[in-house]
Write a protein that binds this DNA or RNA. Structure first.
Length: 409
RNA sequence: GGGAGAGUUCCCGAGUGGCCAAAGGGGACAGACUGUAAAUCUGCUGCUUUAUAGCUUCGAUGGUCCGAAUCCAUCCUCUCCCA
């Protein structure tokens, strides 16, 4: 008999909190369970933060259970205050719909929606129609303000100020669970560990309204060792959409991960057997690097494709071993008007390629020795690149790891 | 509704009329060292072809003044106390 999915989650360190471990293990081994995870469509692409939830749903589906993706078309209009220090920007209904559509497209890569094997529902379907008084009388009675205020997730907001609209988020999420159980016999809610309060709210609501036993399970959050959420870079989130974060950049994000995170990420995000992960020699740089490469490769193939992962890997190998491989690196085609007298100023090229935000920044980069063109270091801010070089495509290296091909029309 | 206070550059935070493009810290970026890691050290951090120069910036708008982040008026947002 195969290992119970729940035990598999546990052994890989995925589980953070569970409402009733034994009951959950039991339920998952006895029947095909319908469970749900909510996603708030606040941006037009999924990012690494959602990734782990998708992996989990995929595992569940493989084990024969039925996932419901709950799009928070309604809740997004309110904004989850959990862990946020500021109020969220309000989105219009059109924006939310657009984002939800994009989510669906990206998710079908991980989850099989055919033949009702997985469902996607939108809580806007019921939340938008709610009548305020009915809602208060049916749902509101079951929530204790005292209890909510004591919850950890509101603490930080109580210092900064919390508006009433956000305070209601928890009720709405709890109500979602009630609706999903009533309509789809959904018995479990999954989420990141930051969702714990919201999830137990829903579990309790089901019990109070219908005396129904349902369960909640939260998963470890992917965080860096400073406790920040993973998947954020200076430029923003690492997206799953190749248009927003190219497979190469995606690959490099994982390739450059902190030593201390490698094993954890392998456990949480890949299917590589546990023993193998635990046997990685963490004392040698070479073996750690090999593990990072493996991680990056596995994840890139999952999110994009094996082909993309291979391309990213070979591009990276070539670049870092000194060979110029211009094929898969980010590139920019510049307008001919930056060329004067058969050459273009290096500063203009840097700004044009988006490698520097302003000429001042570009100058700094050059002066500090951070720029090479076709392997030759440039240290003079007045330097130029000859037109024929640009025509063939010049490879600019910024810092240690950023390569960019620049050519001209 | 009454009273008190706050809004400064990516973030925190100093600055109460010229010496302010604005201290300090964090972050980011670049360099050295490394393993495409971390830690450490150094540089750097509004824009403008170099600048002892010019321009834009200190919640918003208008005003006082030779000169405003700093003073005045109105407005907006937030926090705290009382109701």
């Amino acid at each position: 008999m195969e290992q119970n999915v729940f035990d598999m989650f546990k052994s890989r360190g995925l589980v953070a909190q569970a409402t009733d471990e034994d009951a959950i293990r039991d339920l998952l081994s006895k029947e095909k369970v319908t469970f749900y995870t909510g996603f708030d469509p606040t941006a037009d692409s999924l990012h690494v933060g959602h990734f782990m939830q998708l992996i989990i749903m995929r595992h569940m589906q493989k084990a024969g259970h039925r996932p419901i993706i709950l799009l928070g078309g309604g809740t997004t209009m309110v904004g989850d205050p959990t862990g946020k220090t500021d109020m969220r920007k309000m989105l219009t209904q059109e924006e939310i719909q657009h984002n939800a559509d994009e989510f669906k497209r990206q998710m079908s890569k991980f989850i099989d929606f055919s033949d009702g094997k997985a469902l996607m529902v939108n809580n806007a379907d019921w939340l938008l129609k709610l009548n305020y008084l009915d809602f208060l009388r049916e749902i509101g009675v079951h929530f204790s303000v005292n209890k909510m205020l004591a919850a950890e997730c509101f603490k930080s907001r109580l210092e900064k100020g919390l508006s009433f609209i956000e305070f209601n988020y928890m009720l709405m999420q709890s109500y979602d669970f009630l609706r999903l159980r009533r309509e789809y016999n959904c018995k479990m809610e999954f989420g990141g560990n930051d969702q714990w309060s919201n999830i137990i709210g829903g579990v309790e609501l089901n019990r109070r309204c219908d005396s129904a036993d349902v369960y909640g399970l939260t998963f470890t959050l992917l965080t860096t060792k400073e406790g920040k959420k993973m998947g954020k870079t200076e430029k923003g989130a690492v997206w799953l959409d190749p248009e927003k974060t190219s497979p190469y950049e995606f690959f490099q994000y994982w390739r450059n991960i902190d030593d201390a995170e490698v094993q954890n990420c392998l456990k949480l995000l890949t299917d590589i057997p546990l023993e193998e992960i635990e046997n990685i020699d963490m004392t040698s740089g070479a073996s750690i690097n090999a593990a990072k490469e493996r991680l990056a490769f596995e994840l890139t193939s999952l999110v994009h494709s094996t082909e993309d992962a291979e391309k990213a890997l070979s591009t990276a190998k070539n670049l870092f071993s000194g060979d110029m491989d211009a094929e898969h690196m980010p590139s920019t085609v510049l307008n001919a008007d930056i060329v004067a007298d058969g050459k273009a100023a290096i500063l203009d090229v840097l700004v044009g390629a988006g490698l520097a935000a302003s000429k001042g920044e570009a100058r700094r980069l050059v002066v500090q020795g951070g720029i090479s063109v076709d392997g030759d270091k440039i240290d003079d801010a007045a330097a130029t690149i000859a037109l024929d070089k640009l025509k063939n495509g010049a490879i600019i290296k910024k810092g240690k790891k950023i390569y960019h091909k620049v050519s001209i029309l």
